[in-house]
Design a protein around this nucleic acid. Structure first.
Length: 491
RNA sequence: GGCCCCUUCGUCUAGCGGCCUAGGACGCUGCCCUCUCAAGGCAGAGAUCACGGGUUCGAAUCCCGUAGGGGCCGCCA
């Protein structure tokens, strides 16, 4: 049977990194098995619609390369898959359940304001208050309504919701691919709402209907649905449908060990893209959060991932998102980039003051050491100017055995050597410096150190001293050499 | 509160009864190399496998319990 997976995001306005991982796993599983990957927009909550969010979803999938085979913008015999456009379908299936007695109409009104706990309104729910206020302690009374009462209510035009009728006897089990056998007593399962007053289905219903209608073979989603799945299983049974393989995924946690959230830093794909993380590095990293290849390989290209990904190696324990490791992996992917691509990635991070510098060269110099391109401005700022003052103490370096006096002398000599240099390019500069070191019996490090400090004002730079000199140009180099000597003298 | 799930170095993880005096990666520390730092190479610190009981000749691996964490219990998904 052909594997069919789906990604079913709701339009929240941004692509959460946890959702992206779910999409990635579903996509990889489909691609790995020559199956189909379907995109379905779950926009059944009218109150929470966020403008433009469908575009964000498309854009996120486009930039990460998680292409779908069927869905809203691809047409196809089974598309488009936007739940708000499929209301008639859910209504039709709700009618079937109503007819078979697996569901019933509930006419209970919304909660009285006074009944709400006075101060438990910690976080006001986002939108939809009038319609979606829960019925506190719904006791199932409408499930026992007589036929005549229902008819009377209907005739009066009373609004209603459709609820799933769950027999509270016994228990319901299913086998999750990751978590194994899950059994829940039916008395734990409430008569969940299938169709809301506004005629839209809830996730609980639309999801089951669509997954069946779209022939989804493997339902992959976050494990927050694990304990609701028995209710879905009951729905499948009520319809007489086979249920798909369930693959619940462990959560991704934030640094504090709590669910990854905006408060704790970046959670949206766009946040990482803005910082200069490569889509393939992001995918590589999140693939490893909850899954491992069974080998010691950690660096993966997307084709590698397709070849290697296996749902059998997904773990159960939640994983903490670690941006430091993401950054390392990003650095690995940056190193693998062709020079032009790397420069293209870096370009937007160069500050405008660097206009006089050969940025292409700079890019090739730093490609091997950039992990997060957003660090670039700070890395290269010294090239624009030695803003502020650096401490002459920097000239003293134990490892290279440099002293102030020695540096002062070296700087003076270097000024002579460099101003006399016929050509200004990397090999010439390097040759002159090593020759000078040889003459004076100095190790190259002892020559480079004072030069680096004078040119950059810092002990750590993203490129070697010679590269800096070349990039800066002779005039600026000589000027900075003077500045360094001034500092050493006045200190 | 009820129910469900999870628990190996700081973090991601390997491990599916003996190969584990628990392996790899990130990070950290040190050394080497080099035009400094970085990168690269090498080395090291870092986990009594949450805890307590079993089962077994033998348990990180199986069973039970406890604790901690997470999730669900919405006309949200």
């Amino acid at each position: 049977m052909q594997v069919r997976t789906r990604f079913a995001p709701s339009p929240t306005g941004y692509m959460h990194i946890g959702n992206l991982r779910t999409a990635l796993y579903a996509w990889l599983h489909a691609r790995r098995n020559g199956g189909r990957f379907i995109l379905r927009i779950e926009d059944t909550d009218q109150a929470r619609l966020v403008e433009d969010s469908v575009r964000v979803i498309y854009e996120s999938l486009r930039v990460t390369g998680l292409d779908h085979d069927e869905g809203p913008d691809k047409g196809g015999p089974a598309g488009p898959y936007v739940q708000s456009e499929r209301r008639h379908i859910y209504r039709e299936y709700a009618e079937k359940l109503l007819a078979s007695g697996h569901a019933y109409r509930c006419f209970c009104g919304k909660t009285e304001k006074q009944e709400e706990p006075p101060q438990s309104e910690d976080k006001p729910r986002e939108g939809g208050e009038e319609q979606s206020a829960p019925i506190l302690g719904y006791d199932g009374r409408c499930s026992r309504l007589a036929e005549a009462e229902i008819k009377a209510n209907l005739d009066k035009g009373l609004p209603f919701v459709v609820r799933q009728r769950i027999d509270k006897e016994g228990s319901t089990s299913f086998r999750d691919f990751i978590y194994g056998d899950i059994t829940v007593d039916n008395k734990q399962l409430d008569d969940q709402i299938l169709l809301k007053r506004d005629g839209f289905p809830t996730y609980n219903f639309a999801n089951v209907v669509d997954d069946h209608l779209m022939g989804i073979t493997h339902v992959m989603r976050g494990c927050e649905y694990l304990s609701s799945t028995p209710k879905y299983v009951l729905l499948y049974k009520a319809f007489g449908w086979d249920y798909p393989e369930h693959i619940h995924l462990p959560h991704i946690l934030g640094p504090s060990g709590r669910k990854l959230s905006k408060r704790e830093g970046s959670v949206a794909l766009s946040d990482f893209l803005d910082k200069g993380y490569l889509p393939e590095a992001i995918l590589n990293y999140i693939a490893l959060l909850g899954w491992n290849p069974g080998t010691e390989q950690e660096y993966f290209t997307i084709p590698d991932l397709i070849k290697t990904f296996d749902v059998a190696r997904i773990g159960k324990a939640p994983a903490t998102f670690d941006e430091v490791k993401l950054a390392w992996l990003n650095g690995q992917h940056i190193k693998a980039l062709p020079a032009e691509k790397a420069h293209g990635l870096f370009a937007r991070f160069y500050p405008p003051e660097l206009s006089g510098v050969d940025l292409n060269r700079l890019s090739s110099h730093i490609q091997g050491k950039v992990e997060k391109p957003c660090d670039i401005p700070a890395m290269v700022s010294f090239l624009a100017g030695l803003e502020g003052t650096y401490s002459p103490e920097l000239f003293v370096n134990k490892k290279n055995k440099t002293t102030r006096e020695g540096c002062l002398a070296a700087l003076g000599d270097l000024k002579g050597v460099l101003s006399a240099l016929p050509a200004w390019d990397h090999p010439s500069i390097l040759a002159a410096l090593t020759a000078y070191g040889g003459e004076k019996g100095l190790k190259t490090g002892a020559v480079m150190w004072p030069l680096r400090i004078a040119l950059s004002g810092r002990a750590v730079t993203p490129t070697g001293a010679v590269e800096i000199a070349e990039l800066l140009g002779r005039e600026e180099v000589l000027r900075r050499l003077d500045l360094g000597m001034d500092k050493l003298r006045s200190a």
